[in-house]
């Protein structure tokens, strides 16, 4: 027999946990949806950029002893560079190929990256030290760690920055034009090659940022990208392929479903929530909740 108050506290704690998690989920989702929307590439290697971000954080902070706050932008920058390199080497020559072909190439990239990580860092989980105080931030009956709060704030800032880039800059305008109609955009003088490289680099940077932020909260293992990829798919399908607001809201919805599902249904099915969501959404409203265009086929 539990009192009413502890149950309320439990719910509040779940809501807080979900909010914090949702920020990073949204980052992952936005990166993937950008790449799909503009390039028509289903990026199976997305989770590997996430793992890459976390490992770069480990490299800078734990191996090279760099400052935590300096390491974060460095890790993201390296993610951006890896993304750009992948686009130039792997995807550029497949421009115009069908979606299955690029998917196979990205699966190849995913397996290669993951196992190179495994060879480089071994399978043993790594943890990253943080400069945050170890006692949590207490808000009445609920609490959260300073580290998670930091993750949340940075994630929101990055989401805001991405919106600004897409809506306020010339690059963003060209990206939106490419998204709407690639051929017309090309005719209007948009350098499609540059847009693709920039998009893939930006999307990869966001995934690497999510990894660099969450690496210190959890642990860093070579296989951490698998679940991240699959969750990013769930978020993107939920929000509609190619929709950035959809991916943002989708990230939070998924986090809430997981947290509440684990708290009140069964903790074992936590990770199943996303996939159940995909299946239900695709059966009921295949275009997702926020898609701008019908995009089947």
């Amino acid at each position: 027999m539990r009192g009413k108050i502890p149950n309320m506290d439990q719910l509040l704690q779940h809501i807080l946990n979900a909010l914090i998690l949702g920020g990073t989920y949204a980052l992952l989702g936005i990166g993937l949806t950008l790449i799909f929307g503009i390039m028509r590439v289903v990026n199976f290697a997305h989770g590997e950029l996430y793992a890459f971000g976390a490992y770069m954080m480990y490299l800078w902070v734990m191996v090279l002893g760099a400052n935590f706050y300096l390491a974060l932008p460095l890790a993201v920058l390296l993610g951006v560079m890896l993304g750009a390199a992948m686009e130039l080497v792997l995807l550029r020559r497949l421009r115009g190929a069908d979606i299955d072909t690029t998917m196979l190439v990205m699966i190849g990239a995913w397996i290669t990256l993951q196992n190179v990580e495994q060879m480089t860092w071994s399978g043993v989980a790594k943890s990253i030290n943080t400069p945050f105080p170890s006692s949590p931030l207490v808000l009445g009956s609920v609490s959260l760690s300073w580290n998670r709060l930091f993750v949340f704030v940075v994630a929101l800032a990055l989401i805001g920055a991405t919106y600004a880039v897409i809506n306020r800059t010339k690059l963003g305008k060209a990206m939106r034009a490419t998204f709407q109609d690639r051929d017309t955009a090309a005719l209007m003088g948009v350098d499609i090659n540059w847009i693709h490289t920039a998009t893939f680099a930006l999307g990869s940077g966001l995934a690497a940022a999510a990894g660099a932020l969450l690496g210190p909260v959890f642990v860093v293992v070579p296989t951490m990208g698998d679940l991240a990829s699959l969750k990013a798919f769930a978020i993107v399908i939920l929000g509609g392929l190619g929709s950035i607001p959809g991916a943002t809201i989708g990230g939070f919805i998924l986090a809430f479903m997981e947290e509440l599902g684990a708290g009140y249904v069964s903790s074992g099915y936590r990770d199943a929530m996303g996939f159940l969501l995909i299946i239900v959404i695709l059966l009921v409203k295949p275009t997702g909740l926020f898609a701008q265009k019908e995009r089947i086929g």
Partner: peptide, 13 residues
């Protein structure tokens, strides 16, 4: 698994 926040919220309650 790496995130136990949901289980711990339950345990706390």
């Amino acid at each position: 698994a790496t995130d136990f926040s949901a289980q711990l919220a339950k345990i706390k309650a």
